[in-house]
């Protein structure tokens, strides 16, 4: 403390209470997923793993998990490649126009997904990509680009541009400079952007509502139907699964971040 006043005790208590408001509702699905009842409730007599057993023996849930995983992986690879290249390009060009391109890449965060969903739905009707893996992968990739551009651009801002200059003066071509100089320097940022791009696609519902119907039925799409139709404790087991996946990915990201700043 450097002598400036800190927040008073009641205010600090209030802040922690608000953080509990953020976390507790999420925590509640853990006990609910272990309930011994057949309806959504806290466990009363015993803890039971039957709802997890239901989840992992249901072909519908398993197929949705598999589909979401494949789509998220493909979308992540595509987004990270084009997003990283774009961030590197804009960084080296450094003109007003490049700044404009970087801001343009943020548009998908600002425009509500529902609006984009209408547009891409119409385009996919014309291109016959409705209800296909490719259609959803492209839609998730485009909307994931902002996360990659933001994270990689931030890392590049701290990267010494003279290293790349030196490599060029020593005769390295563009591919060598990208692979051997720039990429190793920003690798942790690229990996964390991949984590966020993955979560973005894995959790995405609104586009899936419009673009997926029968052949493709992602996990969020099935959860949506579950919430609207039969609210059984299997849903809580799915929720726990999703929370654990997110926590693992975020943990990995934070570990990377600590290495990046160290």
């Amino acid at each position: 403390m450097d002598g400036a006043p800190t927040a008073s005790r009641p205010v600090r208590g209030l802040a922690w209470a608000i953080i509990c408001f953020l976390l507790l509702p999420i925590a509640v699905v853990f006990p609910v997923s272990l309930t011994d009842k057949r309806y959504l409730s806290l466990p009363e007599d015993n803890l039971s793993l039957q709802h997890f057993a239901n989840l992992f023996s249901s072909p519908e849930w398993l197929s949705s998990i598999g589909q979401s995983f494949v789509i998220a992986c493909a979308a992540t690879v595509l987004t990270v490649i084009v997003g990283t290249l774009c961030a590197i390009g804009c960084w080296r060009i450094g003109s007003k126009l490049a700044d404009f391109v970087r801001v343009l890449m943020l548009v998908p965060i600002i425009v509500p997904t529902i609006v984009y969903a209408l547009g891409i739905y119409r385009l996919w009707v014309d291109l016959r990509l409705l209800d296909s893996y490719l259609g959803l992968i492209i839609a998730h990739s485009v909307t994931g680009i902002p996360y990659v551009v933001i994270i990689v651009s931030t890392a590049l801002a701290h990267f010494d541009a003279r290293l790349e200059q030196a490599a060029r003066n020593l005769g390295a071509n563009l591919r060598q400079r990208l692979w051997l100089v720039i990429l190793p320097g920003i690798l942790p940022a690229v990996v964390s952007s991949a984590i966020f791009a993955f979560i973005h696609s894995w959790d995405e519902l609104v586009l899936a509502l419009f673009l997926a119907s029968r052949a493709v039925f992602t996990l969020p799409r099935r959860i949506w139907d579950g919430i609207n139709e039969q609210l059984d404790p299997t849903m809580a087991a799915v929720a726990v699964l999703l929370i654990v996946v997110t926590m693992v990915l975020l943990g990995a990201e934070m570990w990377l971040r600590s290495r990046r700043t160290a």
């Binding site: 959790d203 919430i227 929720a239």
Partner: peptide, 16 residues
């Protein structure tokens, strides 16, 4: 943590 947890999971938690 809440920021990155699926919006569906959070809505579901509020329903319960």
């Amino acid at each position: 943590l809440p920021l990155w947890i699926s919006v569906l999971v959070r809505a579901f938690a509020w329903v319960t």
